Simulated assay, not measured.
Amino acid sequence: MRRVRTTATATAPALSPTAQLCAVLLLLAALASCGWGDPGGDDDGHAPGAPAGVTAAAGSATTVHVMWDAVTADPAVGTYEIYRGTTKVKEVPGSEHMVDVIRLRPSTMYAFTVRARDTDGRLGPRSREVRARTPVAVAADHSAPTPPGAAQGRAIGSRAAQLSWNASKDDRGVVSYDVYQGGAKIHSVGGAQTATVVTGLRPHTRYAFTVRARDAADNLSAASTVVPLTTASGSDDGSGTAPTDFRATTHKGDDGAYYIDLSWVPPRTDGVVTEYQIRLDGQPATSLVWGGTAPRGRATYSFYAGGDAGVSHRVRLRARLPDGTWGGFSVERTVSTGDTKP
């Protein structure tokens, strides 16, 4: 669902069983020191976690579009708070995962963070900080870009849609494109992007999308032609939102144990995919969460598979999409420890 891609590879280091156990014990000790998991405490729940997948991009010389992934919490997230530096500038309902921060200064670097507050009022920690620079203001620019041309789209199963359009023209340059569902703005992408994928849709539902271009002076073009589409009925296999080109091999580590090596291309989404679930032999095996910059191109990951050679395993994975839902599973691969063939 997202823009021009560059290849980036992030490989999580494989840990020996002893190291994994030590890491778990240290984590439990840290949580206990914070008062978490204390059965004698007065708090019946925990504050939401920090939002992941936060991005910020200039929408004009005076606006920045901030997006983040939905946070799963119990009780549910009631609101998200958006901060510019240490100043809270916006608050949106928990069902929304994007906002336009307005009245900014041109040609200025800004830093943003997001926090989740649950319906019981508990405020979670800040997300990682993201930065965006507003472009230089253009004096006396009253000319809006031309409407995006040749807008088209297609449903991807029952819960997503892919949209594309031809670039608009502007005498000073297009800074961003705004995507509308009916009369409501639902997303914004950079001016170099002419395609996007919208997730979080309802099955067997008719939608009408349009796209509008925006320049640095905040001049907004007329809408593109309407793109009507209808999502598929019921649930589907999610193949349109699944990781692609999934590969699996094994290798023997220096400790004598075997490890499964995975490689895949993230699904196209609006927003960065930061979390994956890996299933081994039909059961959830581990969750992979990028703490830093998640890859937009091919990603890799290795995990412990035991000390015995000749053991076969079935493995596949899926991504948590920016709207908080799980995408479809990749194809399933079968590997055997000691066999290096893909």
Rank of each mutant, 00 (worst) to 15 (best):
T194F: 03
A160W: 02
P147S: 14
S188T: 10
R159T: 14
A160S: 02
A150T: 02
D178T: 08
V198L: 07
T196G: 08
S176I: 02
A150W: 07
K169Q: 10
Q193W: 15
V198T: 07
V211H: 02
P147M: 03
Y177Q: 08
S164I: 07
Y177G: 10
A213K: 15
G200Y: 04
R212I: 06
Q181N: 08
K185F: 03
R212K: 15
A150V: 02
V189R: 00
R154H: 00
R212F: 02
P203D: 14
G157W: 05
R206Y: 11
V175Y: 06
A161I: 04
H204P: 05
A155Y: 12
R154C: 06
N166L: 01
W165H: 12
G191K: 01
G190V: 11
L201Y: 14
D170R: 04
A192P: 08
T199D: 07
I156W: 15
V197E: 13
Q193V: 15
V174Q: 01
S168A: 03
S168T: 06
A161R: 06
V198W: 07
Y207G: 04
A184F: 14
Y207I: 06
Y207K: 05
N166S: 15
A167M: 05
K169D: 05
A151V: 00
F209K: 04
G191L: 02
A192M: 12
A150E: 13
G149Y: 09
P148C: 05
G183K: 14
V189G: 06
G191P: 01
S188G: 02
D178E: 05
S176M: 08
A216S: 09
F209R: 04
A161C: 05
G153Y: 05
A192I: 09
A167Q: 06
R159W: 15
Q193I: 13
A184T: 15
R172L: 07
T205N: 12
G173C: 09
Y207V: 01
S168N: 10
A216W: 00
V197D: 12
L163I: 13
A213Q: 02
A216H: 03
T210C: 06
Q162A: 06
V179I: 05
R214D: 07
A160T: 05
